[in-house]
Design a protein around this nucleic acid. Structure first.
Lengths: 218, 218
DNA sequence: TTGTTGATTTCGCAA
DNA sequence: TTGCGAAGTCAACAA
């Protein structure tokens, strides 16, 4: 990785056009071709080019291009420092607690979504995409469950489409919908209510505690 | 800005849990508190903490926390280098070609959306949010236009809600919907069709060429 | 402070 | 390769 601190101006032309006036910034050039331009504030780079891309370095003009024709032109006014660091390989990030884990746990413990719920199938296919969980309740009625980490309006819309679709199948009808999430936004709750969709808040830690089918990753 | 290259392992606990095994990485500490951890590949940081947050630095343990209780713990095994650079203030990024520009241009040139279309109002308010453009067609029928850079399912859902809402107003009824975007995804097209919503693809460069009402920014 | 929406979103997975 | 959905999405802006 090469770390250059330089006074520079930048022009990006691609999906949109963007321009950075002359100022001192950090230019990060990675081994895979990635170029990132950072200011001393903010968690996001001001400008960047994602790999695969190539850097052509001239005297005071760096040009980074990718095969889709996007271009990043860095005009160097003054190099403040220029350092190289050998970082070696990256073992990679391990994550725990994403939507996929929640789905696995809820499939194993349907009763956390509603008393007496039994799993029919995970990722039940419909012609507009798979429903997260298809279940039956105590009375044998079909229940379509949409799982989200955070329940928002989009999730309610998505579930509405699934329920509408499944409800056309005489073998499944009548179908009710349940939105299960670790957190449900007020607006989503209102919309769900008006659509006859039930909202259930899931406690991930509690759920993981019931039965450690999926051991902690670290 | 402080740039530290170090062999370290990292644990994040907050919206999820994440772990980085021991390896050499770049630690970027910005003046506003931002901490970013970069490997030598990829355009995204492996781990980070966004401001406002505070860094507590102990011998071999850096702890970054924010007020919502998220925590980033960096365990330092070995410091390879530690440098400081004064970047000064950032004048900021100037952009051209985002959705807002598209809306301005289309408001000026409704005929690009459909022959004979006349603008009634931009950002026409409804009780569920503003419609991008409200127009009338040649026959005097109300047309609600939703503008997106990329037309996807969300945009169709959004427009559907607006049309449904506007259609309740006797002064506007009957209302038809048009999704105008530089690019429209197949699934969005299918859903739009089933909802009776028209899709129009807009050429931004051509549109800007018609009449340079909005001069180029740089 | 909360909510909504756009983004050069990025990223991963599956068809 | 393309399409689609999740993300610690982030960040700007309005209420």
């Amino acid at each position: 990785m090469r770390l250059v601190v330089a006074r520079c101006s930048v022009d990006y032309s691609g999906r949109l056009d963007a321009h950075l006036p002359l100022a001192t910034r950090l230019l990060m050039v990675k081994t895979d071709g990635t170029v990132l331009i950072h200011a001393d504030v903010g968690s996001k780079a001001l400008n960047w080019m994602s790999p695969p891309c190539t850097l052509r370095e001239e005297a005071e003009r760096w040009t980074v291009t990718n095969k889709t024709g996007e271009q990043l032109v860095i005009t160097i006014d003054e190099i403040v420092s220029d350092a190289y660091a050998d970082l070696g390989i990256e073992p990679g990030l391990v994550k725990d607690g994403v939507e996929a884990h929640l789905q696995v746990l809820l499939a194993e413990h349907c009763e956390s979504i509603g008393a007496g719920l039994r799993l029919v199938q995970r990722e039940f296919p419909t012609d507009i995409g798979p429903v997260d969980l298809l279940c039956r309740d105590e009375s044998g009625r079909t229940v379509a469950v949409e799982i989200k980490r955070r329940g928002e309006i989009d999730g309610v819309e998505q579930l509405t489409r699934y329920v509408e679709r499944l409800d056309r199948d005489p073998m499944l009808r009548p179908v009710r919908g349940v939105l299960a999430a670790q957190e449900i936004k007020p607006q989503a709750r209102v919309l769900a209510s008006s659509r006859g969709i039930e909202c259930v808040v899931i406690d991930y830690d509690e759920l993981r505690g019931i039965d450690p089918v999926v051991p902690r990753l670290f």
